[in-house]
Design a binder for these strands. Structure first.
Length: 499
RNA sequence: GGUCCUGUGGCCGAGUGGCUAGGCAGAGCUCUGCAAAAGCUUCCACACCAGUUCGAAUCUGGUCGGGACCUCCA
């Protein structure tokens, strides 16, 4: 078997063959830390976490680079405006790094909640101004950029002309034709510093009130939107690297510009496999600031948003995202999230029960079922290698869940399937659920709490024995109200889980 | 307007031309003091119209609907 990845550039699934045997380089566009992350942001980071985890599982030495965009326009309610007028005290001024720190911390916190593995390198744009300036100088030297009034712009037309001949026209990734674009945007002629509408900024001259500014050969200013990714990807992954990921909405112009910049500087197409995740929608519409339909992650985790019927655990979100394919849109809804919540709980409990089965050595009495389960488990790999079809992996797991629960409740005889199959199930469920899909479930379990619960369970048991159902039901119902669900097992024991 | 994607049962979603994905919700049954949990069974589907094909949710054309990008955007 081999890993197949859908390459946005070629628009087809391709076998993943790394540039350097045994090594994989992956760059994913990270967050702009000028605000809090929302549900939509969760998708790429969870999606590429799966990619990262799977590459690691395959034994690759992976360098996963995910940037933090901390340069640009920064403002926070109330403070940005103040900043321009009042320069009296340092503390009154908006300190950009303060915001950057705040939202970076929040981002990291959210990533941890989702159980995403930290990238190998998390470079910041402000930490790589020198590299960006060097890259811009190269582009100018090669004649693909021009300086105007302290700003530098990339000459898209010249690039397109020259690189079309090399089979890499501007628009190759997003499937756009530069000529057509000009047709459609002719009316809005360029009244600014750009020679052409399609040109994009590599460096921008900072107006006096702009807080973040750096010295450059062209005067004080700040880097353009696209150059940071090219500079940092080149620095840490090389002129050409394996995988570049990001949201579909970044395909144009961001990734298109990256390709152009890197092509000019490094004389090679920067990325071998472009991966783009689709959007999370809300009522069928992309979640985004401009649509005013954003649900922030902190709101999601606490349920503090008018559109939320309840709080949702980060793992519920992760599970929700994994239940769809990353290249499909995924529609948010309370009903859908509640479904994911229950489904995940069901899967996890079955998984725990599976691990508890003690394996000996026996043959299957139901060879057909045994074979079916073996096939379904083998397919975990088939599916994940087919462009990371996590939804199908989960579907197969759910097909097996009734068998596990059946064994646990003695509704299915243990030797229905062979001991070898059970061992395989235990190994593969653990591998996929925990390592590859990155799901986890931490129970609030202290000795003290278990002791108290066990006491209640015992009292209830006594009450039941005396047919004092008022007492026993009170214990059961009140515990449920507090979020503890008691389960009367077949063999008379009582277990509990937190809901 | 241009480019592209998409339309699956109450909801979310997989779907490689033939073999009912899966989850949640609903119904019935088993178990239970009653429940819950669990198991078993079950209802509900491929926007519409034509075409290709022995056979189409899956391919082609058209109609209608939804969306993304074209400006910062995950």
């Amino acid at each position: 078997m081999s890993l197949k990845i859908y390459n946005s550039l070629t628009r087809q699934k391709e076998e993943f063959i790394p540039l350097n045997k045994g090594y994989a380089g992956m760059y994913v566009c990270g967050p702009t830390v000028s605000g809090e992350s929302h549900l939509g942001h969760a998708r790429p980071y969870i999606t590429f976490d799966i990619v990262y985890r799977y590459l690691l599982h395959l034994g690759y030495k992976v360098r996963y680079v995910r940037n933090i965009t901390d340069a640009g326009h920064f403002e926070e309610e109330g403070r940005a405006a103040e900043d321009k007028i009042s320069n009296k005290a340092i503390l009154e001024k908006l300190e950009p790094m303060e915001l950057v720190q705040k939202y970076t911390n929040m981002f990291h916190w959210a990533m941890k909640q989702f159980n995403n593995i930290e990238p190998s390198i998390e470079p910041t744009a402000t930490g790589h101004i020198v590299e960006q300036i060097t890259m811009i100088e190269k582009i100018i030297a090669d004649g693909y950029a021009y300086v105007n009034n302290g700003s530098v712009y990339f000459d898209v037309h010249k690039y397109n002309e020259d690189f079309s001949k090399k089979g890499m026209p501007y628009g190759i990734l997003s499937g756009r034709n530069l000529e057509e674009q000009i047709e459609t945007t002719r009316e809005l002629d360029n009244q600014d510093e750009k020679r052409n509408k399609a040109d994009f900024a590599l460096w921008k001259n900072a107006p006096p009130e702009h807080i973040m500014r750096w010295k450059s050969p062209w005067g004080e200013g700040f880097p353009g939107w696209h150059i940071e990714c090219s500079a940092m990807a080149t620095k840490y992954l090389g002129a050409q690297f394996d995988i570049h990921g990001g949201g579909m909405d970044l395909q144009f112009p961001h990734h298109e510009c990256e390709i152009a910049q890197s092509n000019v500087c490094n004389h090679i197409a920067p990325v071998r496999y472009w991966m783009h995740n689709n959007m999370i929608t809300i009522n069928g519409r992309k979640m985004g600031k401009s649509y005013n339909n954003v649900i922030k992650l902190s709101e999601l985790f606490t349920g503090s948003h008018p559109m939320l019927e309840q709080a949702y655990h980060p793992m519920t979100i992760r599970f929700f995202i994994l239940q769809s394919h990353y290249r499909s849109t995924l529609d948010f809804g309370n009903e859908a999230l509640q479904a994911s919540e229950k489904a995940f709980k069901r899967l996890w409990e079955a998984y725990e029960n599976l691990l508890k089965i003690e394996v000996g050595n026996w043959q299957a009495t139901d060879a057909e079922l045994d074979e079916k389960i073996n096939k379904q488990i083998t397919e975990f790999t088939t599916f994940i290698e087919d462009d990371f079809s996590t939804a199908k992996v989960l579907a197969n797991m759910f097909e097996i869940v009734p068998v596990i629960n059946g064994i646990k409740n003695k509704q299915v005889a243990l030797n229905t399937i062979s001991s070898n199959t059970i061992t395989l199930m235990q190994q593969q469920f653990k591998l996929y659920i925990e390592n590859i899909l990155g799901l986890q479930y931490e129970e609030e379990n202290s000795e003290k709490l278990s002791g108290i619960l066990q006491l209640l369970v015992d009292i209830r048991k006594q009450a039941k024995a005396q047919k004092d159902f008022v007492t026993s039901d009170t214990i059961r119902n009140e515990l449920l109200r507090l979020g503890v669900q008691l389960k009367d097992e077949k063999d008379g024991t009582v277990t509990w889980s937190f809901v």
